[in-house]
Design a binder for these strands. Structure first.
Lengths: 239, 239
DNA sequence: ACGGCTCACATTGTCAACAATCGACTGTCT
DNA sequence: AGACAGTCGATTGTTGACAATGTGAGCCGT
């Protein structure tokens, strides 16, 4: 730890970063570890162990964990422990139903303002996603798909909406990562996203709406089958 | 402070509360102080002072503040300070547009399941709100109106939606409180909410949708006028 | 007088030790 | 044998002190 801590000189005119704090770095690292699957759902996070691992004290670590709790990735019970959240069938169903609503809202916000930059950005991200799928790189596909959808939210400029998407994205990624590890190749098929982008660039809002609904419904059904199977297996094992 | 801290005896069989921590209590207290207007928007929150005031150390207080930051009530810049957020015209516009979407989504979720309990609960909360308005009790009106709308969200049982509403409610209440202090009597007029509840209990979903849109549009317009005036005044004063 | 620099202060970030609580284990009593 | 109380270890909650950083006041040179 404490690598670039002594940089007294760099007045650095253009960087408005007020000297990064540990908490942010730790939160990012922890989040990555969770979403990457290095820490499995249900696993307990022990503060002292993690603090050692990150080379910091428990103070900053606790704040980072609290941030992840607010993001819905961790769940804490006082004096007992903090665990990585395990998503249920209902949880995933909620995420997908919410996405339908939010994403349609996002397109409502931006519909009249879909300029050239937006169209190019959307196509670029679809191409990136397609490349990842063709390369059968699941981890990259997940990130690429999140960036495709995230681009739509960002384009709205609606800070509250973006904030809400951020609060959902973590859980969605958590689920996708688990699905990916369990099933190998995951959901995103080429044609589905091609159609999605095509509709997003068309002038028929109603068709886009139903495309989004279908898009999510496909993903949702897939997830439900997977999760129901997992829950059934878990139920058959534990009691 | 420090009243019920030493309760060693109370084994308290029926309470499943695992011994309340300070952090939660402080977060509630701080939130109340902010929403109540005891701490004005823009004011800086100094950790040491607040810690003394609450009778705790800076550790728990920092975590409570971080929670309020995640709720969007505070904004922090490292090594410099943490301030109560001041909402702009755009912020309020975003809140209202988001509410339209979320509330329509909420009714979609619950539409087919509007049983007797739901209807009675809705009417009861409308009556409570009406009573507060008739009594010209602004502070109570705000709470009552939040409970009326909150009841709809709760009724969906959609945890993610409720969570999202929670993340918006704080900012909405913050704005309403500021509006209330500046303008005296605030927005909620009787007939507006009567119509809202009437539509919510009817069987015409489309009409409800437009009623919600109008309902919010009225509120939004009102807020914009107020905020634009405030910003204009501020702009005329500071530079 | 004005711009840049130094320095002290206020505030936040971090740390290591201490206290409180929970869960499980164990030993005893019925 | 089974149930219950007490105890022990592990983990989180809390604290006060120390370090790093940003900000503004005051000084100096021009």
């Amino acid at each position: 730890m404490s690598d670039g801590a002594k940089g007294k000189v760099a007045g650095s005119v253009l960087a408005r970063v007020p000297k990064a704090t540990f908490r942010a770095h730790i939160a990012d690292g922890l989040r990555a570890a969770i979403l990457n699957g290095d820490i499995e759902p249900g696993a307990q996070l022990v503060e002292t162990a993690l603090a050692d691992q990150f080379g910091v004290s428990r103070g900053p670590l606790r704040e980072a964990m609290r941030q992840l709790i607010d993001e819905g990735l961790l769940i804490a019970v006082p004096y007992t422990g903090t665990h990585v959240v395990g998503l249920s069938v209902d949880d995933v169903r909620e995420i997908y139903s919410m996405r339908v609503t939010l994403e349609i809202f996002a397109f409502e916000q931006i519909w009249a303002r879909r300029d050239q930059a937006f169209r190019q950005g959307l196509v670029a991200r679809r191409d990136a996603l397609t490349a990842c799928i063709d390369a059968e790189d699941d981890a990259a596909s997940i990130v690429a798909e999140l960036q495709l959808h995230g681009f739509v939210y960002e384009a709205t400029g609606h800070k509250l909406l973006i904030r809400t998407w951020d609060s959902i994205r973590g859980r969605l990624q958590l689920y996708w990562a688990a699905h990916h590890r369990a099933h190998g190749i995951r959901g995103p098929r080429r044609d589905g996203h091609d159609r999605y982008v095509e509709m997003a660039l068309s002038d028929d809002f109603d068709t886009l709406k139903s495309e989004i609904t279908d898009h999510m419904a496909r993903g949702g059904r897939q997830t439900e089958d997977f999760l129901r199977g997992r829950e059934a297996r878990a139920a058959a094992q534990s009691p």
